[in-house]
Design a protein around this nucleic acid. Structure first.
Lengths: 205, 205
DNA sequence: TTGTGATATGAACAATATTAATTATCTTTG
DNA sequence: CAAAGATAATTAATATTGTTCATATCACAA
């Protein structure tokens, strides 16, 4: 019975890996029951022995992608300075990840979730993802008296929505029209919300 | 030849009206070649005599919906005061429209556009829609020295992205968890970006 | 070795978009 | 007014999708 569990998880993993590869490569549009099963080396019908439906399988990828994104972000922000700089670098790396893997963006923010059992928990995982990535650096800012807790919370929310809105327009409506412009506007927005990296005076007041 | 044009436009209109009704009613998921043609009183194949494909037809609805939304917004903001109040009321009415007709939201922001001829122009139409709705009231604020032009532009952008992000999370990820909370957060964000409606001092400085 | 239960699969079904072929309709002209 | 030709509408057909189900296959226990 324990063996069964292990084997089942292993095979589920084959399907999930196949789906992840397709998502990162060609995007959601090529992820079908048949394409995933093909890549996993099984028949399409077999998939239904391990997942309720295709949506179920697809959303099992969220956690993996978050972990992957988190790793990428952490590696990229190493060189940048503490505090505000770190927050900005985090957002930049976050945005970079989702523009590189637009299939993952679709999955996280665009794909309608059917009646997955724990859909609410997955939603929340997605909703709070950027906040979680930035959290330690907001904490640092608070500790350094750059913001007070309340102000940090406000800015956190502003950042969350702003980044989301920008990503959506860029990915789905090609606005701004190229990546450089996009990043430029993003940095302007961050400047606006977070402020310059090395303030001359305490901003908490 | 002129007659032809008129007749063609008339029949295109039947399909477009049918699609619009379906979009506003049950949403994008029920809009299919068959359902639209059924409602229009034609066979599904007839649709292809008038539109390149389904996407082409669907995106022809954008202009109509924008006009409709604009009318709704203008009617709703009549009672509210000038300047900042008017901007806030506009955003509220805008958000109200898209939460009432989530099918229109899907069409505007979520639906992938195929290779429509003037896709870039439609993209831009969508991207700048909220800005256009608010434009006269920003102008008013500038005229009243509440903001200078540059600051107004910044705030315009912030508002655009913030509203977009909030709508996306609310519609697709059920965050915040109910409409009241959603509106509450929205108002907080607007307060943050635009400021209180009746400032005690000039904020341009 | 044989039977049992778990697992894998192909056939089948329903819904989808789209294209091609065919039929109906309408217009124009002899 | 009627037949030819153009235009419009429809039916038939193809391809792809998700999902279900009866059956085949395989591992392992009796």
């Amino acid at each position: 019975m324990d063996k069964k569990e292990i084997q089942e998880q292993r095979i589920k993993g084959y399907f999930i890996d196949a789906a992840k590869e397709l998502l990162k490569g060609e995007g959601l549009s090529v992820v079908s029951v048949r394409s995933v099963a093909d890549k996993a080396g099984y028949s399409y019908a077999t998939l239904y022995n391990y997942f309720k439906d295709l949506n179920d399988l697809i959303f099992e990828c969220v956690r993996d992608f978050q972990a992957e994104c988190e790793t990428a972000v952490k590696s990229k922000i190493k060189k940048s300075g503490q505090g505000k700089d770190k927050i900005k670098a985090t957002v930049q790396a976050y945005v970079e990840y989702f523009t590189e893997y637009s299939g993952v963006f679709e999955l996280f923010f665009l794909e309608r979730m059917g009646n997955i059992g724990n859909k609410q928990s997955i939603s929340e995982l997605i909703y709070t993802f950027l906040d979680r990535l930035c959290e330690p650096h907001w904490k640092y800012c608070i500790a350094q008296n750059i913001f007070d807790r309340e102000l940090a919370d406000k800015k956190k929310r502003q950042l969350r929505f702003c980044v989301m809105g920008m990503l959506l327009f860029y990915q789905n409506r090609f606005q701004p029209e190229n990546y450089n412009k996009f990043i430029e506007v993003l940095n302007n927005q961050m400047e606006e919300i977070i402020g310059t990296s090395y303030p001359t005076k305490n901003e908490t007041a």
